[in-house]
Computed example of a mutant assay.
Amino acid sequence: MYIKKILWAIALIGLVAAGYFAYYVYSAMMTPNTAFNNEEAYIYIKSTDTYKDVRSQLEPLLKDIDKFDALANQKKYVNNIKAGKFAIKKGMSNNDIINSIRSKNIPVKVSFNNQNSLEKLAGRIAKQIEADSTSLVNAMKDQAFYDKNSFKAETALGMYLPNSYEFFWNTSAEKFRDKMLSEYNRYWNKTRVEKAKRIGLSKDEVITLASIVYEESKEPKEQPRIAGVYLNRLKIGMPLQADPTLKFAAYQLPKYKNTVIKRVLNVHKDIKSPYNTYKNTGLPPGLVAMPDLSAIDAVLNYEKHKYLYFAADPKHVGFHKFAKTLSQHNANARAYQKYLSSKGIYK
């Protein structure tokens, strides 16, 4: 009888222990463990992060980090960290959180425009994905990549078409570059390639001209007409005489670093540079800026007309007056120069 009592006592203690253990496991796995009031919070796990790094991000978001540790160990998450952006929703249990940060990498929207060098583009992208600006610049300027895909230093920026794209946050520099090449090739479909051929320009030349058009006007409705002016000049062998190319040439010189040229002067027209389209005929070697897609399409769908000149319209800021003759253009140009002087803009 005494032995039976001992066995019953042991069994009872075992049941209590098992019940406690079951409760602890249930509590660790299934009960809500979030400590924030928003509907969801995000953590960003780098490719080099350890469990300690992940834990430091989670700790302020959870009520009981110790129970999370216990389950993370049991589910072997501590040795199987996944990089990316992950969501933790209000009211999630530890089990839900581990499942989320283990397998539910969330894509991010990456957008850019008006980045007028690969370095500036890399800086912009580095703020939106894990890859840093140095690794991005190195990938973008890789000579083997240039050679394989027929780019050069002067035209490489034209591969990155300004828009919004979807990436995983932990995308590497090389994968970012390669996806942008895919987007570039997708943009240059059969229809656009044929349009470029009809106007006698390569893809690089279209984007180079578009960069000039875009710097001349940010108005999409006016860009096809400006593109038509430059194409008319190219057809007759007339220098483009594009002020944006002079500014670009000037900004390459130490004298003009960290300055903003608001008024193109005769001294700028004397700069020795392949980008000086007052001295050189044809297109410059490459882009002078990152053009919007509207400007690229403006070149491909340029307005057919007989204008050879245009000057900024002082009465409609952002727009231009177009002319077929030099005398008419000179009158338009004088009106704009007078306007600049009235505003105290002399350089």
Rank of each mutant, 00 (worst) to 15 (best):
L157K: 08
L157W: 01
L157C: 07
G158F: 05
G158K: 01
G158S: 15
M159P: 04
M159S: 13
M159Q: 14
M159W: 00
Y160P: 03
L161A: 00
L161C: 08
L161H: 10
L161T: 03
P162I: 10
P162M: 04
S164A: 12
Y165Q: 09
E166C: 11
E166G: 09
E166F: 13
F167G: 09
W169D: 09
W169F: 07
N170L: 06
S172V: 08
A173N: 14
A173W: 03
E174Y: 14
E174I: 15
F176M: 11
F176S: 04
F176Q: 02
R177D: 12
R177S: 03
D178R: 12
D178Y: 06
D178A: 13
D178H: 00
K179L: 11
M180F: 01
M180K: 01
S182H: 03
S182I: 11
S182G: 13
S182N: 08
E183L: 00
Y184V: 01
Y184F: 14
Y184H: 14
Y184K: 09
N185Y: 04
N185H: 11
N185L: 06
N185T: 03
N185P: 14
N185G: 04
R186H: 11
R186W: 09
Y187E: 12
W188V: 00
N189P: 04
N189A: 05
N189F: 15
N189V: 03
K190F: 06
K190D: 15
T191I: 10
R192D: 09
R192H: 15
R192T: 10
V193E: 11
V193P: 02
E194R: 04
K195P: 08
K195V: 01
A196N: 12
A196Q: 01
K197P: 02
K197F: 14
R198G: 04
R198F: 09
R198A: 15
R198S: 15
R198Y: 12
I199S: 13
I199Y: 08
I199P: 00
G200F: 06
G200K: 07
G200T: 00
G200I: 05
L201T: 13
L201H: 05
L201N: 10
S202Q: 02
S202A: 03
D204T: 03
D204F: 12
D204P: 05
E205G: 14
